[in-house]
Write a protein that binds this DNA or RNA. Structure first.
Length: 210
DNA sequence: ACATTAATTGTGT
DNA sequence: ACACAATTAATGT
């Protein structure tokens, strides 16, 4: 708990940190646990202390695709919007590994927004960050640059796992990106020919040139 | 050790 | 996108 204070110090003011430590619960999740599910009321906004969370969204045709990852000191922009009006969740959040997070009661969100400038800029920053990400992927989709999206996906995956090997089948990658397996296989093959990575069964090794 | 089967990956149309 | 071939891993005998 003391280490937690240290981490928050860098971007939140002290009085706010005290309030967080006083009034907020710390929750733990194991790999694969569902933290937030579709159509559930979101009563807490998560602030990740350690571990990483995968945020998914279901399409009209029932297919799930990956929105983004959340790791240390990040929070969920989607959860925030839902919390404010106590709306039902449009997303699903799954623990990618063991996760510790602070759950912030939704009553506090408004209150802190006017009370603490650092909270306001923290929330604002995480929104613009997500917004820019979405703009970039929108651009990629508009120009059919699936290869760029795949590269970002792989980089992301290796960042959150901390490993240069990605242990997934082409099919799982395709599902998370909302495409077909064949195109992923072909793109990966090209990347392998360009000496960017090595392909094995259920494993992709990223090379230093990646 | 070998055969069978299932799952993953590669490729052409 | 689809179909099929090739490869690899898993399991049983």
């Amino acid at each position: 708990m003391t280490g937690l204070k240290e981490k928050l110090k860098h971007f939140l003011e002290l009085k706010l940190i005290d309030e967080i430590v006083e009034g907020c619960k710390v929750m733990s999740f194991k790999e694969g646990d569902v933290i937030i599910d579709y159509n559930k009321e979101i009563k807490f906004m998560p602030l990740i202390v350690s571990g990483t969370i995968r945020v998914m969204r279901k399409n009209e045709d029932g297919h799930e695709l990956l929105l983004y990852y959340l790791s240390s000191n990040e929070s969920c922009a989607m959860a925030y919007t839902c919390c404010m009006e106590a709306r039902k969740s449009e997303i699903k959040a799954i623990a990618e590994d063991n996760v510790e997070l602070i759950s912030i009661p939704h009553e506090k969100l408004d209150e802190w927004l006017v009370k603490y400038p650092s909270w306001k800029s923290y929330i604002f920053n995480s929104f613009t960050q997500r917004f820019n990400e979405l703009l970039k992927s929108l651009e990629s989709i508009a120009f059919h640059k699936l290869d760029e999206r795949l590269i970002k996906y792989l980089k992301n995956k290796s960042r959150v796992t901390g490993k240069s090997s990605i242990l997934l089948s082409h099919n799982q990658i395709a599902e998370e990106m909302g495409t077909s397996r064949v195109v992923i296989s072909r793109l990966l093959k090209q990347l392998e020919n360009d000496k960017k990575l090595l392909l094995y069964r259920n494993e992709i090794k990223l090379l230093s040139t990646f």
